[in-house]
Amino acid sequence: MEQAFEQIFQDKIDREVRIEPKDWMPEKYRQTLIRQISQHAHSEIIGMLPEGNWITRAPSLRRKAILIAKVQDEAGHGLYLYSAAETLGISRDQMYDQLHTGKAKYSSIFNYPSLSWADMGVVGWLVDGAAIMNQVPLCRSSFGPYARAMVRVCKEESFHQRQGFEILYVLSKGTEAQRKMAQDAINRWWWPSLMMFGPKDDESPNTIQSMKWKIKRFSNDELRQKFVDVCAEQVKVLGFTLPDKDLKWNEERGHYDFGPINWDEFWQVVQGNGPCNKERLDARKKAWEEGAWVRDAALAYANKKAKQKQAAA
């Protein structure tokens, strides 16, 4: 019986039919999705912090408005994704609990500090750029609610990368100090953004299952290469450089070659030893704990009003 369902399930996936929450699905598929979607959601929420950090310091009113809108979008994206995960039978509070207790992960990139205004440009250009590259294929994810959430996310995300590039473009035309600020930011964020695509394919033996289920459609290395190729061209427009002496066009491959990634650093950050892991998590926990009385009060009020209404009826 179980096997027959498995067959039907895989057949649907192969025919590009979306799986919906109430359809039969292998338990592992469900778990995989909950994990992936919730971690994606956590990344959006934690990702608000390094940029939110600059809202009060944005250098012009236009930039301030754009940055607020952008960080707010990220809250919205987190919300869409939590909602998609909730269709699989887990509550948002449970997911928060996983985040706050350190059981659930989020994208390591947000454990790096945003030190200058140019970081707002680089986060938009490189970090959002890498995220978009990861996310666009997810719009065709086999799980309907995830795919739909991602369509919404990607639609809204497109302005994020543009505003980041624009910040850098303006800096590139600016004073010497501004150009220095921008180059420094690129130097700090380049390697961590390459790490955003995850470990190398040959260190990821089980990618196959995920591809077969069409949760994932391209391998980490494929996406990373695509990203490097795009950025290596774009950085020329800015007149800046990427901090990689091995970066070179390879005519034969039709791709840019690039230097080795420091995976030790990657694993250190994943394991909680990044420069801001503790601050990020503490900030989220603080917001959640200090908001408890607010949430309780709103619920108490709603219940009180519902009872009054009932009594009056």
Binding site: P26, K28, R30, Q31, T32, L33, I34, R35, Q36, S38, Q39, H40, S43, A85, I90, Q94, M95, Q98, K103, A104, K105, Y106, S107, S108, I109, A130, A131, N134, L138, M195, M196, F197, G198, P199, S204, P205, N206, T207, Q209, S210, I215, K216, N220, F266, V270, Q271
Partner: peptide, 20 residues
């Protein structure tokens, strides 16, 4: 049964006792 210990979306670290 499936053995899954892949980092599914980019760099999220896989943890045995994740949300699911």
């Amino acid at each position: 049964s499936f053995q899954i210990n892949k980092l599914y979306y980019g760099d999220y670290g896989e943890s045995k006792n994740g949300a699911a």
